[in-house]
């Protein structure tokens, strides 16, 4: 999280200095012609891919483990199929996906110099993000009521950790968008500073894409099918003398 916070500074007004021949219009001469802050954001997203990759790998390794323990009489519920509400989460996933659309519209507005459009669509994006977060908060409290906490079982631990860190990323994104909105309201984001919006957009779309993966792996794929597939794979490996 601290890493994500730290990258905020690369995207806000002023940002870092463009050493040497900066012309203060946001277009410093660089080797690639691209703005340095944009490359930094891509590098950060690459590393964030590895971060979520590690957490998702953890989730997939423990996926179905709570059921296995439960069937062996050693585990305690609630189990994923008892508690995950796919229709409910589908709606909040849809809300988050729509926020990518509004983000695109925000960038398109400021690139055309439409400051009012920027404000409207930035506000809409932040609002949709906040609705998603509200949905997640409600989902977490609901699970808590049904007896699933962070330490209840391995499903609870891995579920709250993975989705929680995604939620933290969305939270940082909403704060970032709000900061841009406030800057814009103070007259701070002009057409030639569209890059500030573009970089925030890169981050926002990334967080969205990660949710598509998480939503599929955590919610959509049925839990019993996974264990069947694993069993079949193990059987096949055994037949050829491996595993």
């Amino acid at each position: 999280m601290a890493q994500a916070v730290a990258t905020l500074e690369t995207a806000h007004g002023g940002g870092e200095s463009h050493i040497g021949g900066a012309d203060h219009s946001g277009h410093p001469p660089t080797s690639t012609g691209l703005d340095s802050r944009k490359i930094a954001m891509w590098a950060f997203l690459a590393s964030d891919c590895m971060f979520f990759g590690s957490l998702i790998a953890m989730y997939m390794i423990y996926r179905g483990e709570a059921e296995r323990l439960y069937q062996a009489g050693q585990g305690i519920g609630p189990l994923p199929h008892e508690i995950l509400d796919i229709p409910y989460t589908s709606i909040s996933a849809f809300v988050l996906l729509m926020s990518s659309l509004t983000m695109v519209l925000a960038l398109a507005s400021i690139q055309k110099g439409n400051v009012r459009g920027l404000r409207i669509w930035l506000g809409a994006t932040a609002l949709l993000g906040a609705v998603f977060l509200g949905g997640q908060f409600f989902e977490f409290t609901e699970f808590k009521h049904e007896g699933l906490g962070l330490t209840t079982n391995i499903f609870g631990s891995s579920f709250f950790t993975l989705t929680g860190f995604h939620g933290a990323h969305v939270t940082i994104g909403v704060i970032w968008l709000m900061s841009l909105l406030i800057m814009s309201l103070r007259g701070g984001v002009r057409k030639d500073q569209a890059l500030n919006v573009e970089i925030a957009g890169l981050y926002w779309h990334f967080v969205d894409i990660v949710w598509i993966v998480i939503f599929t792996l955590v919610y959509l794929i049925p839990y019993d099918e996974i264990s069947t597939i694993t069993h079949e794979a193990e059987g096949a490996l055994r037949q050829i003398g491996l595993g």
């Binding site: 590393s47 891919c49 962070l150 330490t151 950790t161």
Partner: peptide, 24 residues
């Protein structure tokens, strides 16, 4: 940039085990 996130995630899970009582 590509390698450190793995230990960041691993250490977060360890921190949860130690501070919050999970069992990763």
């Amino acid at each position: 940039v590509m390698a450190f996130p793995a230990i960041t995630a691993a250490l977060i899970l360890l921190a949860f085990d130690r501070y919050a009582g999970t069992g990763f």
